[in-house]
Computed example of a mutant assay.
Amino acid sequence: MAALDAGVRRALGQLLRDLRRQQGLSLAELSRRVGVSASALSQFETGRAEPSLGTLWQLGRALDASLFDFFASEPKESVDLTRVEDRTVVTYDRARYEALARSNTRNMDLFLLYLQPGEGVVREAVGHAGEECGLVIEGELVVHVAGSTYRLGPGDALWFDSEQPHTFEVVGDEQCVSVWADTIPRHRGGAESSESVFS
């Protein structure tokens, strides 16, 4: 995994700490929920270390946050226009995510997923509450869902219940580009809405 910039790592750590405290969770309790040691979580929060992409998904699930929430730099209005140059971009290993909508009142993530070819899946399989749907734009993609595999080419789409562990694998030597939507966790004003985490 390419290392995050030190400033990004510190900002991510501060947000993780803020989210954990807002929900009244101790490091020990969050550790139990995520399956990562409390000492590692402490290092994430102080910016001395960075979580893997899979760990970020698990943290998102435990803290009711989308992956994009961890990297967005400012809150957005209830109507939000995101210019191409203003997209929130998250890159880990062979995966690049570009958020197409960043409103802080959204109940779903819409994003482009760019996957580079390589050996095996792009990350460990992770499940989370909610549902998601994707459409391949270019290249070929295998989506692994709960032990089953689905091969998609340009124009093919897949919907699934995201409680099932899932991950992605590029077919061939070319980049795969797809667009995805998934529900995300929201607990605003004490009301709970659909709960999921970014892909």
Rank of each mutant, 00 (worst) to 15 (best):
H187K: 10
H166L: 06
V122G: 03
A2M: 13
L100W: 04
W57C: 12
Q116W: 01
V121I: 01
N104M: 08
E29M: 07
V36F: 02
R10T: 10
F168C: 08
M1D: 12
Q116P: 00
G60R: 07
S66H: 04
G127Q: 07
L113S: 13
F44H: 03
H166S: 08
L27V: 04
L67A: 11
A101V: 14
E195L: 11
L16H: 03
L59N: 03
T183K: 01
W180E: 04
V8E: 12
F70G: 03
D109R: 05
G54W: 02
D93K: 11
Q164R: 15
F111W: 10
E85A: 15
Q164I: 04
A2F: 12
G147I: 10
S148G: 11
F71T: 01
H128E: 03
R102A: 15
K76G: 15
L25A: 05
V34N: 06
F70A: 05
L152C: 08
E45F: 03
V143Q: 08
S178Y: 13
D86Q: 13
S194G: 12
W159C: 10
I184A: 07
T46G: 10
W159R: 15
A125E: 14
F111S: 11
E124L: 09
P165K: 10
G153R: 09
D93E: 15
A157W: 08
D64L: 09
W180K: 09
L141S: 11
A146R: 09
G147T: 09
S199A: 15
S193V: 12
P117I: 12
D109V: 10
E163I: 08
F68N: 01
E140C: 12
A38F: 04
E174D: 14
K76L: 09
E124Y: 05
R20G: 05
A181G: 13
D80W: 06
V90F: 14
A40E: 01
S37M: 02
V79P: 00
R87H: 12
S42T: 03
V170C: 08
F68Q: 05
W57F: 11
F70N: 02
S162L: 05
A3C: 00
S194A: 14
L4H: 01
A129K: 11
R96P: 00
T91N: 03
Q58Y: 06
D173V: 12
E132P: 08
T167N: 14
I184N: 06
Q23H: 14
R61Q: 14
H166A: 05
F168H: 13
V136Q: 06
L141M: 13
A95W: 00
C176W: 07
T82R: 10
Q175R: 14
S194C: 08
C133L: 12
G147W: 07
L113D: 01
V84G: 00
S37P: 02
T167Q: 01
G54V: 05
A101I: 12
R151A: 15
A181T: 14
G120I: 11
S196C: 08
E131D: 13
E132A: 12
A28R: 11
A28S: 11
R83I: 04
L15V: 07
G7L: 09
S73H: 06
